[in-house]
Computed example of a mutant assay.
Amino acid sequence: MMQHQLAVQARFRPETLERVLRVVRHRGFQICAMNMETGSNAENINIELTVASLRPVELLFTQLSKLVDVACVEIQQPTSQQIRA
């Protein structure tokens, strides 16, 4: 499985993180690492995800971008690391 890193900027609401995690799971990606912090103002959060899957990361990117509270999704430099399932 290939690992991919994503940066998500979203509105800080109680359900936002739950929605992001649900989309990751429904699209068949496994979360390897996650970091979340509040943005420059208390209304936004930055979520950094490292996910693994055999599926193309663009599928996850497209679905996360459609979420109401998500402002921006970026695919970071792809890692050449592969993990075995």
Results as ranks from 00 to 15, higher is better:
35 N>Y: 13
53 S>P: 00
29 F>A: 03
60 L>Q: 03
80 S>C: 11
39 G>W: 05
10 A>L: 03
7 A>K: 08
49 L>C: 05
57 V>E: 11
45 I>H: 00
47 I>W: 01
3 Q>M: 14
67 L>N: 03
49 L>H: 03
51 V>G: 04
7 A>W: 10
22 R>I: 04
45 I>K: 02
80 S>L: 14
6 L>R: 05
26 H>F: 07
80 S>H: 15
27 R>E: 14
33 A>V: 02
9 Q>H: 12
17 L>C: 03
37 E>C: 07
78 P>C: 05
25 R>V: 12
33 A>S: 04
12 F>I: 12
58 E>W: 08
58 E>S: 12
56 P>R: 05
69 D>R: 01
47 I>K: 02
36 M>L: 15
64 L>K: 01
74 E>L: 11
6 L>C: 02
48 E>L: 11
63 Q>H: 10
55 R>C: 02
50 T>S: 02
44 N>L: 15
72 C>I: 14
22 R>K: 09
81 Q>S: 10
77 Q>E: 13
62 T>I: 08
62 T>E: 15
2 M>E: 15
27 R>S: 12
68 V>H: 08
20 V>F: 01
65 S>H: 11
80 S>T: 15
69 D>F: 07
51 V>W: 02
69 D>C: 02
78 P>I: 11
47 I>P: 03
32 C>I: 14
25 R>L: 11
13 R>K: 11
17 L>G: 04
71 A>D: 15
58 E>C: 01
18 E>K: 07
72 C>V: 15
26 H>Q: 13
68 V>M: 13
